[in-house]
Measured scan of single mutants.
Amino acid sequence: KLATQLLVDLAEGCHTHHFNSLLDIIEKVMARSLSPPPELEERDVAAYSASLEDVKTAVLGLLVILQTKLYTLPASHATRVYEMLVSHIQLHYKHSYTLPIASSIRLQAFDFLLLLRADSLHRLGLPNKDGVVRFSPYCVCDYMEPERGSEKKTSGPLSPPTGPPGPAPAGPAVRLGSVPYSLLFRVLLQCLKQESDWKVLKLVLGRLPESLRYKVLIFTSPCSVDQLCSALCSMLSGPKTLERLRGAPEGFSRTDLHLAVVPVLTALISYHNYLDKTKQREMVYCLEQGLIHRCASQCVVALSICSVEMPDIIIKALPVLVVKLTHISATASMAVPLLEFLSTLARLPHLYRNFAAEQYASVFAISLPYTNPSKFNQYIVCLAHHVIAMWFIRCRLPFRKDFVPFITKGLRSNVLLSFDDTPEKDSFRARSTSLNERPKSLRIARPPKQGLNNSPPVKEFKESSAAEAFRCRSISVSEHVVRSRIQTSLTSASLGSADENSVAQADDSLKN
């Protein structure tokens, strides 16, 4: 292990032709098999893994070397290190390495390699500790012929580059190093199909959405987006994914797998022009299946994007999809995704031109529960009313008269009656009930004795009459309010007539 670390330190600071010789020695160290011998017992696995620490030291050392060589000349050094790393990870899946030390190597290698970024000039870069990406002036992410390196360097940008540029090249004859992302992409596909350690798979799935944002990485080298989509959909639809995973937390289920895969599918929607129609349908189907899991909100957001990006695919699945959405409970976490999906859909009339009455009724059935102001915040309630109004205007004229009683009944049950079921009123009724029952229970537990009763009969009569009056008032709060309003209006009217009579009498006395 110490000798391997010494080789790594020497290679990191070497800029001459001896660098390749040092890498040859490190490569021989990495070539050791990580498969346990067949006769190895389970209690000896930890000791055997400790004997392979030099392999881990070599791989982690290459990660440090690549981070240094990416910004220094010659660029061919970075290319050689990158290829060695990718080849080593491929061996893991070729020979099915399952030892804990092998999983640790893959975890740290993917953690580093999935941080690679590219700008519009195809320059590769890595983020620093502050998250700012520094791009290399010597390494690009696409394949290029050595003699055409300078031509590639002087080509115009596709868009303004992001991030601070690296140091300027030493001279005009500098050759750019090619670090094609397709090599890593193929290893990522192998990981999605064969990885057995949940920690490694979770890391890859968590980092892929951010990497897919940099389309330069994908399009400048032959990366098959179709295969990526197929691998992701197979993970969700195939039963073998959960069987092969180990190291998963207790209670791990298909729902947890959906939570990890759906963000990658959402990021892949922007590549729909490069996906086969069959793959697009598979993607939409997987998102529909996710509606029954805890990732339902993410799936609804993804389907909203699909309705804009892939209208030809979503239009066929939309009638059944809208009916499925009615089975989702009206909760605060689902309110905004569902209502925004319906609001977006209302502005795309070509998608729902074939809707029948059942689909329009489903839209109103989804939106009406969110009009309850005692359960949802003001934004959700306003958005629900907006969706109902928009869809009522957009639905066909023959359907409107049939939906009017349905909508008014839903609004009455969710908006008007919600004020009668407020917690304050319920607590008031509970308190009044307890007050009504309390005197009775006290009389049963403690019967009054005439000799020891010091309270006069008049006081008892007053208290009983007050309790009886309170019971009468607490029967119905709404009736009490109505009666008080009527009494107030009658009182004001009587006072007004009394004032008029007094004024008339005063005038008569003055005349006399």
Rank of each mutant, 00 (worst) to 15 (best):
S196Q: 08
A173D: 12
R246Y: 08
S224L: 04
G125K: 02
M84S: 08
L192P: 00
V225E: 01
K202M: 06
Q67S: 08
P164Y: 13
P239E: 15
L236K: 00
A102M: 02
K153L: 13
D54M: 01
I65L: 15
A231I: 09
H122Y: 03
P160V: 11
Y93R: 00
D226T: 08
Y82G: 01
T220C: 04
A231N: 06
G125H: 02
C223N: 04
R207H: 08
V55D: 01
A58S: 04
G251D: 08
H95W: 07
P160Y: 07
G177P: 04
K56Y: 11
S103E: 10
L188T: 10
E210M: 09
L121S: 09
R106L: 01
G247Q: 07
L245N: 02
P100E: 11
C139D: 02
K152G: 12
K215V: 02
L203F: 07
L99R: 01
E195N: 01
A231G: 04
T72M: 14
L124P: 06
F252N: 02
T241N: 06
L85H: 00
L217M: 10
Q194H: 10
L63Q: 13
G156Y: 13
G125W: 02
L70C: 03
F185D: 01
Y97S: 02
L99N: 06
S234Y: 07
Q194T: 08
E53A: 09
R186K: 11
L208Y: 01
T162H: 13
I218K: 02
A248N: 07
E151P: 11
E147T: 12
S234C: 07
S76Q: 11
V86H: 01
Y138F: 15
T57I: 07
L184F: 11
A75W: 07
L205Y: 00
L183E: 12
D130T: 06
A50D: 11
V132T: 10
S211Y: 06
T72F: 06
E145Y: 10
G177I: 04
P209R: 07
V86S: 03
K199T: 15
L158M: 10
A58N: 00
R186Q: 11
S76E: 14
F252A: 04
Y93H: 00
G206T: 11
S136K: 01
L126C: 10
L205D: 00
T241L: 08
G131P: 02
A78L: 02
S104E: 13
C229T: 07
T162M: 13
S196E: 10
G149I: 11
R117D: 01
T68A: 08
F135A: 03
R246V: 09
S224D: 10
L70D: 01
G206Q: 11
K56F: 05
S155L: 11
Y71M: 05
C141L: 04
T98L: 07
E83N: 09
L60G: 13
K202T: 04
P180V: 02
L121G: 08
L183P: 11
V81Q: 00
L52H: 08
L121I: 06
H88K: 00
L124M: 10
H95S: 09
L236Q: 01
R106E: 00
Y214I: 04
W198F: 04
S159A: 11
A102P: 00
E83Y: 09
G156A: 11
L176Y: 11
C223S: 04
D130Y: 09
D130N: 09
C233A: 04
K215L: 02
R123M: 03
L245W: 05
